[in-house]
């Protein structure tokens, strides 16, 4: 259960600095604004199917907020400990590398949940005026939750590669945006390649969720994506065994 100890300390670090609050505020403000404008759009243009007319846009926009904020959350996880040198002590405690990775990952995850939960206020107010079917909304929340988890896993890995937080954040942006743009050249690419690219694209697996559809293939993709990056993180921590510690 040592990963809980690691997790608690990470959360403590997040909330004892103002960075956490700023990230939280920016995420909530942006996603609140997007909800508002998407709702106006939906009403003005006379949409009547909520999942494809409203929720889809709300969650596609929320995805952008998560893309913006989560790399800034994960960038410090290992990079800061390496820079400060606190990681050396961490390695002398009787704790497995896996527990350290799990703890840090979990801390970000909990933080992400804290970010996500208050956004439910918007649809809740909406529900007060109009009793819509909540199934599709829950599916979309599951989607953004899985997508964010994937972002975090990727960020954790990148953070384990460097001791520079800016590099860590930037490289995470790079990878995530790449996984987004992967399908943008479908016009020029070979049909068979596009087919493969679509399968790999992070965001193409999110679109179904945002429209209220839960496809097990999409869930499996995210599970695989997360496991891959957590595995890579473990491997990258093992590098010290032959490369040493600065």
């Amino acid at each position: 259960m040592k990963f809980l100890v690691v997790c608690r300390r990470e959360l403590r670090s997040y909330f004892s600095s103002y960075i956490a609050y700023i990230l939280l505020a920016v995420f909530l403000l942006l996603s609140g604004y997007f909800f508002y404008s998407d709702l106006i759009f939906f009403i003005l243009f006379g949409g009547y199917i909520l999942p494809t007319g409203l929720w889809q846009y709300v969650f596609l926009d929320m995805r952008l907020c998560a893309l913006l904020v989560l790399p800034l959350l994960t960038m410090r996880l290992f990079a800061e400990e390496k820079k400060l040198g606190t990681i050396e002590l961490l390695w002398t405690y009787p704790v497995r590398d896996g527990e350290i990775v799990m703890g840090k990952f979990l801390a970000c995850w909990i933080f992400f949940l804290t970010m996500l939960l208050p956004t439910a206020i918007n649809p809740l107010i909406f529900y007060h005026f109009y009793q819509f079917a909540i199934g599709p909304l829950l599916a979309a929340y599951l989607g953004i939750f899985l997508l964010g988890t994937a972002f975090i896993a990727c960020g954790v890995f990148i953070s384990s590669l460097t001791e520079n937080q800016v590099v860590s954040a930037m490289a995470t942006y790079g990878i995530l945006v790449f996984f987004w743009f992967l399908t943008w050249n479908e016009e020029v690419a070979d049909e068979r390649i596009v087919h493969v690219l679509l399968r790999l694209s992070l965001f193409d697996h999110f679109y179904n969720f945002s429209r209220g559809v839960i496809d097990t293939r999409d869930v499996a993709f995210f599970a695989l994506f997360v496991s891959l990056f957590l595995f890579l993180t473990l491997e990258s921590l093992g590098v010290r065994k032959w490369r040493g510690v600065r």
């Binding site: 050396e88 002398t92 009787p94």
Partner: peptide, 17 residues
């Protein structure tokens, strides 16, 4: 490791605790 107490050359601690 559970038997060893270690003091590193570069003492770095979590400053926010």
């Amino acid at each position: 490791r559970s038997i060893v107490g270690y003091f590193p050359e570069r003492v770095s601690l979590y400053l926010d605790l």
